[in-house]
Simulated assay, not measured.
Amino acid sequence: MHITAAVARLDGAPLELERIELEEPRDHEVLVRVVATGICHTDVAMRDSSARVPKPVVLGHEGAGVVERVGRAVRKVRPGDHVVMTFDSCGHCASCYKGDAAYCIHNARHNFGGSRPDGSTALSCGHEHIHGHFFGQSSFATHAICTERNVVSVRQDVPLELLGPLGCGIQTGAGAVLRSLKVGAGSSIAIFGTGSVGLAGVMAAQLAGAAIVVAVDTQDARLDVARELGATHTFNPLREDVFAAIAQVVPDGLDFALDTSGNLDVIRKAVLALAPRGTCGLVNSAKGADVSLNILGLMLGGRSVRGIHQGDSVPEIFIPHMIELYRQGRFPFDRLVDFYPLADINAAMADMVAGRVVKPVIRMPAA
């Protein structure tokens, strides 16, 4: 079938809207008509990267849509189902068997390879192969081929166009707080960076009953939103010594810190600001950089630093859980969303990078 997709052809260049071909779903695949898809900073990083993903490629990994067709071996969903598309995984490595699909041993192949694991791609333009299957979906398109593993069936009485970011950014922030760090009632947490991941963490910390929720960012508008969503304290490092201010709020140190910035100096200082037995979670790769930490402080204080991918989520459980919390008015992630048409996808990316919007979501044109 012919579809419209935003194709990344050159490193750092604007995406190009093109008419391309999409194969029929194979036995374990699902064809989804994309209703809307979030834009994540990972999409921007891959657009600009010369090495992380092959080009030309269709990016996009926060899609939501309606199942149109399924392969003959698919049992999980059927045509007409509303689905959120999330990260892909192999399903047969040790991590997947243990229920830790976010840490699939073959994560790179299934999410960043630009093809199916066998090297083929469902996308083409004439005789030209177009790389796809980004996070098992490539949702910057009117239709996407997914695997049975990375679609999550969701209820149909919530706006489907809102739900795509639950598959990555919102899942990562909320899951980091609720599942990875297991923030408890009465505890203290500081969240560094209040983009969509950080603000999801703020909402989750409030849900968890944290007594102190500190939000740190250089943009006052985002700090205003953080306060509205549950932050008890907000600090802007452009105006004040953030860590001195945090020490005034929690003199004995933080129970938890969550870094979404990837700033190495912030990470070092966040670890130093932990209370004994405190934990710092990292959700930003910092472009693969190394960071030095004081081992004595970690050892004597029993402090921990841990990486977090996709909020340790089991998407089939956690995404419906977030939707139910949203329906109850306790997890208003819709406050983070601004909508753009597919034709304005490059403007949406630019607005996100500049901090003018938190979570841009691309609506697909009607069929």
Score class of each variant (00 low, 15 high):
164 G>D: 10
65 G>S: 05
232 T>R: 05
149 R>D: 08
46 M>P: 03
291 V>T: 06
305 V>T: 10
255 D>I: 01
222 R>F: 00
287 K>Y: 10
309 H>Y: 14
260 T>E: 12
276 P>C: 03
281 G>E: 02
217 D>M: 11
324 E>L: 07
122 A>K: 09
234 T>S: 07
272 L>A: 15
65 G>W: 03
58 V>M: 06
195 G>I: 05
142 T>Q: 09
109 R>V: 15
350 A>E: 13
337 V>N: 00
197 V>F: 06
63 G>W: 07
151 V>T: 00
326 Y>D: 05
207 L>K: 04
315 P>C: 04
255 D>Y: 04
336 L>A: 04
38 G>S: 11
273 A>Y: 00
268 R>A: 10
197 V>I: 15
235 F>S: 07
352 M>H: 02
119 G>Q: 07
165 P>F: 09
184 G>M: 11
110 H>E: 07
114 G>N: 04
13 A>I: 12
136 G>F: 00
202 V>M: 05
107 N>G: 09
72 R>S: 15
356 R>H: 13
20 I>T: 08
297 G>S: 10
196 S>Q: 01
325 L>F: 01
129 H>N: 12
76 K>D: 04
141 A>V: 08
146 C>G: 04
290 D>M: 14
74 V>T: 00
52 R>W: 14
341 P>H: 04
268 R>F: 03
166 L>M: 09
282 L>V: 06
167 G>I: 04
97 Y>R: 15
238 L>G: 13
94 A>L: 13
162 L>S: 10
57 V>W: 06
1 M>K: 12
24 E>L: 09
140 F>D: 11
108 A>I: 14
103 Y>W: 12
219 Q>I: 15
279 T>V: 12
331 F>P: 10
193 G>H: 05
240 E>W: 05
48 D>K: 14
51 A>L: 14
45 A>W: 10
144 A>M: 07
42 T>D: 00
221 A>N: 15
162 L>I: 06
19 R>D: 13
156 Q>G: 14
233 H>R: 05
158 V>D: 10
340 Y>A: 10
268 R>H: 13
31 L>W: 01
249 V>S: 08
41 H>L: 13
75 R>F: 12
181 L>C: 04
283 V>A: 11
77 V>W: 00
274 L>F: 06
200 A>H: 11
139 S>N: 08
231 A>D: 01
269 K>W: 02
116 R>G: 11
83 V>W: 02
274 L>D: 13
31 L>Q: 01
112 F>H: 11
217 D>R: 04
307 G>L: 06
155 R>F: 09
222 R>D: 05
195 G>V: 00
156 Q>P: 13
155 R>P: 07
71 G>M: 11
336 L>T: 03
267 I>K: 00
320 P>C: 04
42 T>I: 06
165 P>Q: 09
